[in-house]
Amino acid sequence: MSDTSLTVAVIDPSRARAAILEEGLRAAGIGRVVVMADTADLMERVAALAPDVVVIHLESPSRDILEQMSGVARHVERPVAMFVDRSDATMMQAAVDAGISAYVVDGLRPERIKPILDIAILRFNAFSRLQRELSEARGELADRKLIERAKGILMSMKGLSEDEAYKQLRKKAMNEKRKIADIARAIVTAADLLG
């Protein structure tokens, strides 16, 4: 896709996510992509930019500003409308799943908007997948550190080898149907309090 005559504004409380979408739209040949901060003067800035399409994250409180800029407000020169493709319920669902809504200048043809939404859906989904993986990785790392500390406590208090300490943790976790990291956390907390 290459739609060099279009101006697209991106509004997202997450700067990182906005940057990822911006890059995707640029790579697809969109003429002008502008990331806008979610601040109180947003309406003035949108009116000044006069974008053809605004892609806005569902978590942005500024969506209601764009709704007010729709046809009902007579002073707005280029009225916008929420893009709802009634013929394509699957795409609407996918957009909301990804956290996206779009507002378009009245009269812009749906076939010019769909590729933009497709890119936004792909990019936002990729972003949340990355975020999930990152937080899982962080959680695993934190768990591993806890288990190391708990092993150390058991080794010094009970004179166990590292292997024996780990086996005791694992046995306790199995007996209590809990995760090893939970048992480790309890040991570390207790040692902090008593130590």
Partner: peptide, 15 residues
């Protein structure tokens, strides 16, 4: 919900 528009959409689409 962060905005009335998002609340409306989530209700309309069954979320």
């Amino acid at each position: 919900e962060p905005s009335w528009a998002t609340l409306r959409d989530r209700l309309a689409l069954g979320y």
